[in-house]
Simulated assay, not measured.
Amino acid sequence: MKDVKSQASKSSVPGKGGLNAEIQSRIGHQLRAMYDDVVRQGVPDRFADLIRKLDAPQGGAGGDPAKNNGRE
C-alpha cells in the first residue's frame, strides 16, 4: 500500500493534490475489470423470482393503491 501512496504522490500534479491522468486511467481499468466479472455472473434465480413477485400486481389489475403499500 505504501508503494501506491508514494507512486501517487510522485505522479500527482504539483499544487492540485490529485492523481494524474495515467493513474486515473489505471484505476479505471482495474475497476472495470473487477466489475465486468460481477456483471457477467448475472442475477441468481431466487433474486429474479423475488423481483418478479414484487413487480406482479397484487389483487388484480387496477387494484387500490392503498392495498399495494403505496406502490404504483
Score class of each variant (00 low, 15 high):
49 D>W: 05
25 S>W: 01
41 Q>R: 15
11 S>K: 15
26 R>G: 08
46 R>T: 14
30 Q>S: 14
31 L>C: 06
38 V>P: 05
72 E>N: 12
65 P>Q: 04
24 Q>S: 09
55 D>S: 08
5 K>V: 10
32 R>A: 10
49 D>V: 10
5 K>Y: 06
52 R>I: 09
34 M>E: 12
19 L>G: 02
31 L>I: 15
12 S>G: 15
68 N>P: 03
47 F>W: 09
32 R>F: 12
49 D>I: 12
36 D>L: 10
54 L>Y: 11
36 D>C: 00
36 D>F: 03
34 M>C: 10
67 K>C: 05
57 P>M: 02
14 P>R: 05
63 G>P: 06
4 V>H: 02
41 Q>G: 14
55 D>W: 01
7 Q>Y: 12
71 R>H: 12
44 P>Q: 03
71 R>P: 02
21 A>S: 14
2 K>T: 14
40 R>E: 15
20 N>A: 12
68 N>G: 05
56 A>E: 08
17 G>L: 03
21 A>H: 05
50 L>H: 08
49 D>Y: 07
10 K>V: 11
46 R>G: 01
71 R>N: 10
17 G>F: 01
64 D>A: 07
63 G>W: 02
68 N>V: 04
46 R>L: 04
43 V>F: 09
64 D>W: 08
22 E>A: 14
5 K>L: 12
67 K>P: 03
9 S>N: 09
28 G>M: 05
1 M>I: 07
30 Q>Y: 13
10 K>G: 10
3 D>G: 15
48 A>D: 14
37 D>Y: 04
18 G>H: 07
17 G>E: 00
13 V>N: 10
40 R>I: 00
7 Q>M: 14
19 L>I: 05
6 S>A: 10
23 I>A: 11
53 K>V: 10
13 V>Y: 09
27 I>R: 04
64 D>T: 08
28 G>D: 06
40 R>D: 12
9 S>F: 04
21 A>R: 06
70 G>Q: 05
50 L>Q: 13
40 R>M: 11
3 D>Q: 13
17 G>P: 07
7 Q>S: 13
63 G>C: 04
15 G>I: 04
35 Y>G: 00
69 N>T: 02
25 S>T: 12
24 Q>I: 09
53 K>T: 13
2 K>C: 05
16 K>W: 06
45 D>Y: 02
16 K>N: 07
14 P>W: 04
12 S>P: 00
14 P>N: 05
19 L>T: 03
53 K>G: 12
23 I>W: 00
30 Q>I: 14
72 E>K: 13
38 V>W: 07
47 F>P: 00
59 G>I: 04
68 N>C: 08
14 P>C: 02
25 S>Y: 01
69 N>M: 08
54 L>E: 12
69 N>L: 09
33 A>F: 10
67 K>W: 01
25 S>V: 00
19 L>D: 02
45 D>F: 01
21 A>Q: 11
36 D>A: 13
63 G>K: 03
15 G>F: 07
69 N>I: 03
65 P>S: 06
57 P>C: 00
32 R>W: 02
47 F>D: 11
13 V>F: 03
35 Y>N: 13
29 H>G: 09
16 K>M: 11
39 V>A: 12
28 G>V: 01
12 S>D: 08
66 A>E: 13
49 D>P: 00
70 G>I: 08
39 V>E: 13
29 H>E: 15
35 Y>T: 15
34 M>K: 15
48 A>T: 14
37 D>N: 12
20 N>F: 04
